[in-house]
Design a protein around this nucleic acid. Sequence first.
DNA 1: TCAAATTTGCATCCATGTTGCAAAAGTAAT
DNA 2: ATTACTTTTGCAACATGGATGCAAATTTGA
Lengths: 139, 139
Amino acid sequence: MDANLKYRKILKRHNLSATQFRIRVLKEIDIVGRPISRNELLDKLGIKTDRVTLYRNLQILCEFNIIENVDPEGSGFFVLKYGKKAHDLHHLHFECTECKKLYCIHEIVSDISKIPAGFNVDSFYLLAKGTCEACSTNN
Amino acid sequence: MDANLKYRKILKRHNLSATQFRIRVLKEIDIVGRPISRNELLDKLGIKTDRVTLYRNLQILCEFNIIENVDPEGSGFFVLKYGKKAHDLHHLHFECTECKKLYCIHEIVSDISKIPAGFNVDSFYLLAKGTCEACSTNN
DNA sequence: TCAAATTTGCATCCATGTTGCAAAAGTAAT
DNA sequence: ATTACTTTTGCAACATGGATGCAAATTTGA
């Protein structure tokens, strides 16, 4: 009956309070179905949404492994990270400089197995920037 | 006789005024020999250096193809880009989250020839983050 | 050397991210 | 359901990084 039960359960499973705010955030990330930026989330949540609260919750949700930041830049792009379809980081992300959306290009992958000794890798990114089809043709 | 003649010539060749400021910037980028960030440049140029002037000149030098930004993030990392040893963008960059330095790892490369149609690629980056040998052992 | 053009340095603004804290919401026990 | 307790939210304030406008200084070229 509760359409938000899904998100409430995820939060509870990770020992986090199931607040309205967090449920809304998870729902938006889930619905959009691709890595979403802080600013796009702010837009979707409404203009009155507090930036601080969103940033703090994104950080908490990351720490509790409920979501994941899949982009190296400060602001980041977030995806859900639970159950079966974990986001594989070793494919290419294409960021459109016009619409600011991030596309996953699974055709292009790379690996870091050949990295020289001494480098302690925490995260790895394959990133392209340019314009997506929609933005290229609309000009 | 003029130790800075080299940089003066580069600027002139590209029809840019050979100002003291630009000569100092080019010299620092040349000396450090690896991609250098805005903040590290500010440090090297001295605490009194004006941020705006540096940013504006880095942008101009990029536009005139004298230097190149080899990192996708806002602040960026800059290298000289003239003559023989142009920086090849398709190798891995390792950014140390401790000392903030960027290392070029030529052992790891990738290519974007298999990118699906419709994506108009302007720039491409292979980026790893973590701690370098020096920073890993000094903790 | 001097006038014209360009560049610099400063003031100011804007966007983005952080911290502290009182008020509000969520939780768990009765 | 009410209560007491804990956590979270929303706001104010601050910090950093980047951009613009403009007068003063530097550079250029005749």
